[in-house]
Design a protein around this nucleic acid. Structure first.
Lengths: 226, 226
DNA sequence: AAAGCCTATGTTGCATGCATCAGGGGCGTC
DNA sequence: GACGCCCCTGATGCATGCAACATAGGCTTT
């Protein structure tokens, strides 16, 4: 049930080098805006600069870093505007995913989602926000994977990488009352999927994402620099 | 009004090398499934293999080629299933774009779209399918760009690259009666946008994409190998 | 003749070296 | 003291060379 997506190694990806560097960047080990010298990464991963450069170029393509020619590679922090744009996309893609899953009506996914929802309610009651954030993450991913549309999964993955989801989800979860509302919305989505109502599922999911995005974009940790 | 998107050169992209190789691959100059040796491209573009490799890795990431480690780079032809998946995404993304444009109600884009629609009707009457295909292409791109959501544009671009649009659009256009129906659907979309009705615009656009995708996936040039 | 091994070849994967250039700091000038 | 010029440093961008490996084809063996 864990991230067994993308088990396939990219060509020549020395033991998943791309993934490791991506985690380094996403993990916030580097302050956003900081430079990430190729030589440092090369030494860090004990390879030459060549494969490092290839990986960095991919990360640039993914929008995670910015490579300023002849200057260096910088960790890219999405602007507020980009976050809004990404949430609009998220709403659309997850809506599609919910719709497709509802149409398929796959029992396998449904039981996973039901179980997830139960655990979420538990975490909600005990106010275990960490567990809750993790469960939300799994809930959404399960639905996206359940769409059985690999291209959708790929695009969603790119999207989520750029959103640096973890922090934002935590923000959302910390809003008073949001946690309970979120759970209700999840249940609504699951209901619609169980009723095999693609349109309703899409609508419910979009409502949910929209709501959570509004919370993610307000108050806690203002950080209005962008 | 031409593809002035992505004018910015990627870092170290020796004069748009990535774009040039992408065009080579998309242009069908290589038979799908054929190998594209790095050495050949290196000679072709008069650079060393290093920047070629970087570009090829990106193309793999875009899903346009497949790099089999230690074997070679192969032009990737989407399977029928992938085409279906991509059209589902297309429907969703263009629906979002239409919705956003309708909400913005930008006059600039509207006049472009009106003009495009007029020309389309001309091409429809004279059965100039080439011109029609080009106009359809512009119509959709104008709406996507008009969404004023750059991330959406980026994802759409990736999507369309994988769809090798040209061929499929031509297929669609060659369906009897489809050409007129397509024009009507375009008008419906534009109407909704002009009325600043996001929901209606999204719906109209999704209907249109869905219809055209159904045609694109049937009869002409069966090619059921996948 | 069929099957299996083995070598030959073409290609990739990566390390290394060098040219190039952006930016910073020091110096001189006004 | 402020401004501007110039060199210097550090990093990148790319070419090149070599090792490793997947595949094909022939050869041997049964």
């Amino acid at each position: 049930m864990q991230d067994d997506l993308e088990v396939v190694r990219e060509a020549g990806d020395r033991d998943g080098l791309l993934d490791r560097i991506r985690r380094l960047v996403l993990g916030g080990d580097f302050p956003p805006g900081a430079v990430v010298p190729e030589a440092f990464l090369a030494q860090e991963f004990d390879v030459s600069r060549t494969p490092i450069r290839e990986a960095l170029k991919q990360l640039q393509h993914e929008g995670l870093v910015e490579i300023r020619p002849k200057v260096g590679t910088f960790v890219r922090e999405p602007t507020r505007r980009e976050i809004i744009e990404l949430f609009q996309l998220k709403e659309s893609l997850e809506g599609l995913a919910a719709s497709l899953l509802a149409r398929r009506g796959d029992v396998q996914e449904l039981s996973v989602l039901r179980r997830n929802l139960e655990e979420s309610e538990m975490a909600s009651l005990t106010h275990d926000t960490d567990a809750y954030a993790r469960l939300v993450h799994e809930f959404h991913w399960t639905i996206v994977r359940g769409s059985d549309n690999r291209k959708l999964v790929e695009h969603y993955e790119r999207l989520m990488n750029q959103l640096a989801y973890q922090r934002l989800v935590l923000r959302t979860v910390e809003h008073p009352g949001r946690l309970e509302a979120s759970t209700r919305e999840h249940r609504a989505v699951l209901d619609m999927i169980e009723h095999k109502d693609p349109f309703g599922a899409e609508s419910a999911m979009r409502n949910h994402v929209h709501a959570s995005s509004r919370e993610a974009l307000t108050d806690p940790a203002p950080d209005r620099r962008n």
